[in-house]
Write a protein that binds this DNA or RNA. Structure first.
Lengths: 348, 348
DNA sequence: GACTCGGATGTTATCGATAACTCTTCTCTC
DNA sequence: GAGAGAAGAGTTATCGATAACATCCGAGTC
């Protein structure tokens, strides 16, 4: 049997909670007045407001969000579209979004994008046409979802790439991982490494990803040889496979990885190849995921403020939905290189 | 043809997507008939059904979930209440729940419980009174939320503890980590360790947690000394702090940890204490979180099927909501000890 | 042929809210 | 003192669906 709401009042359990009508009846006013009190939009006399608020408290009344939304009330719910939440970046961004949204009184929906999810069903993931959405578009699936969203959906997105081509989309936030990658690369060069190899995460665009670009620029600017980037996936295993054959070459002394998981795989490959870290080989990751400080050796990595990014993304959406009242978009931290044990001077 | 009553506005903006009325008008039937076709509950002639379906396709009509829910339609949305999703167990369970729910056509809401969130506001996290919920109750906050939910909320929960006291709640799923902890303990004893120390995760109940219990039982049954469990938190740091002073004692040769993060901290403490793993000290974790296979040394741990648990939890909820049509609750895997490099024979 | 029966549909009420409009009162000008 | 404004509160329409009830009509029964 399905759960229905159309129960006759007689034998309905008393559990059904108070509606705006109940409040109105008890308070001796019209339900519209109750609505006014709730929303604080229109003017209500102080006496009436107090009475209504008291009745609301007594009855434990709480507005039905569905009804509010249906009636065209202010948007108070967001759906987050994200791909694989097993990845640290996406998961942390989601946490930031959820926290900010919840704090602002929004309810948060979540819908995970399959790698092969078609564009057609994206809109179906929203509870109603025009519902607000946030997209975590760090990978291809996310970017496609963002593109596939109908134009009438108010959306804000956390994206991987700094859009330096095409018109700026004011409803996007990103981390400057291009500068961060360049910084990490210069750090390694500064330790005396002749060049730096790079294991890349999958790109979300056809263009050169920002991290790859930053790494490339730094090498180029320093006049160092630029090796071919090694294509990796998201997992430790893919990092392991990407560098396994490379590490036999002792001239490879520094590896920058597109994320910490790749670095984990690279460190294992190094162990198996008999390379000492950081004596023989320096490894630097990206993300500063929770385990990285406790790895053996602990991982030098670029800390990325995904949670802050997520909060900012919601802040942006909030302003888009309600420019008048939404608070300023919170700032998030710049990427920061965290130096730990896995990196050191180039071998003599 | 004349339609009375709920006639949609003539001059509605074109941007608004099709409603059931639009479909009805184009198909030349009443909106109730469209509703019948959508829900397939009542009988509709084959010709009419075909025509309506065609119009639905043409107009790209999709039912508004909010309106359906408000009108008392079948429940098609769930809110997941969970505490800190930064923890692997909760995050993986959430993934399983989301996947299963999405596959079944449910929309998924998520609300993260703060450590100190009061009981009063739990019901406020649901979009309407009586909305379905799932609770990830692996810790104290989750358990309290589960208790605080009003009785009229259809809920299923993933809990930490096997309820062997009190009446069985048929709407709960759990992993048998008691048996798993016992198994892991026996494994270590079998390697020749005199006893096994245990670093505990925080308890979700006042009673002895299942993992602690299983560890205790195994030691007791083998007639070994039972050391005091070491209270840990959830983080690597807490594991590090919990055992730092202990490891000076060379008679401590085996440590079982309540989760992999604790194990990570324990391994670092061991490194600093100059203890070799697994030569001097065996470390076993719990969860089989993604990095554990790539740690140095790779971590022996108990694999827990959190995703399967999450899927099962949704399956249970689905059956609760719709006993007639919901598919069978999917099975999930038993805990399994994954032996890797971090454990070995007791030192001579 | 009147009557019942049940399948196929249409009509109306309802869910719980908001928006737009209306209706009273007062107060303030001139 | 009459009309303009504005505050405070009520009425009605509407959002997009489902449930309950009403209606229509052809087939079978006696």
């Amino acid at each position: 049997m399905e759960v229905t709401g159309h129960m006759p009042a007689q034998d309905a359990p008393r559990t059904r909670s108070a509606s705006i009508w109940d409040v109105a009846r008890v308070a001796g006013v019209s339900q519209q007045t109750v609505s006014r009190v709730i929303n604080g939009k229109a003017r209500v006399s102080e006496a009436t407001r107090a009475r209504v608020l008291q009745v609301i408290a007594e009855l434990g009344y709480r507005p039905n969000r569905l009804a509010q939304a249906l009636a065209g009330g202010p948007v108070r719910s967001v759906t987050v579209l994200t791909s694989d939440t097993a990845l640290y970046g996406a998961a942390a961004t989601l946490r930031g979004m959820e926290e900010a949204a919840r704090t602002a009184g929004f309810s948060v929906g979540i819908s995970v994008l399959e790698r092969d999810s078609g564009q057609a069903d994206i809109a179906l993931r929203l509870n109603r046409p025009g519902e607000a959405a946030m997209v975590i578009a760090f990978d291809d699936a996310g970017v496609r979802a963002l593109r596939a969203l109908p134009a009438d959906v108010p959306v804000a997105a956390a994206v991987e790439r700094q859009p330096d081509d095409g018109p700026d989309d004011p409803w996007q936030v990103w981390l400057d991982d291009r500068a961060a990658a360049a910084h990490a690369t210069r750090y390694l060069l500064g330790l005396g490494h002749r060049t730096v190899h790079y294991v890349a995460i999958p790109s979300s665009t056809s263009a050169l990803p920002q991290r790859t670009q930053g790494w490339h620029d730094a090498l180029h600017a320093a006049g160092r040889p630029v090796p071919e980037p090694l294509p990796g996936g998201w997992s430790p295993r893919s990092g392991y496979l990407a560098v396994r054959s490379l590490l036999a070459d002792r001239s490879v002394t520094a590896v920058l990885c597109g994320n910490d998981d790749l670095a984990l795989g690279v460190m294992r490959a190094a162990r198996e190849a008999g390379r000492d870290i950081p004596g023989d080989l320096s490894v630097v990751g990206f993300d500063d995921s929770p385990p990285s400080a406790y790895l053996n050796p602990s991982l030098t990595t670029v800390r990325l403020d995904f949670e802050g990014l997520g909060r900012a993304c919601f802040g942006l959406l909030h302003r888009r939905l309600d420019p008048q009242n939404a608070p300023a978009v919170p700032a998030w931290s710049e990427p920061e290189l965290i130096v730990r044990e896995s990196s050191g001077p180039a071998p003599a």
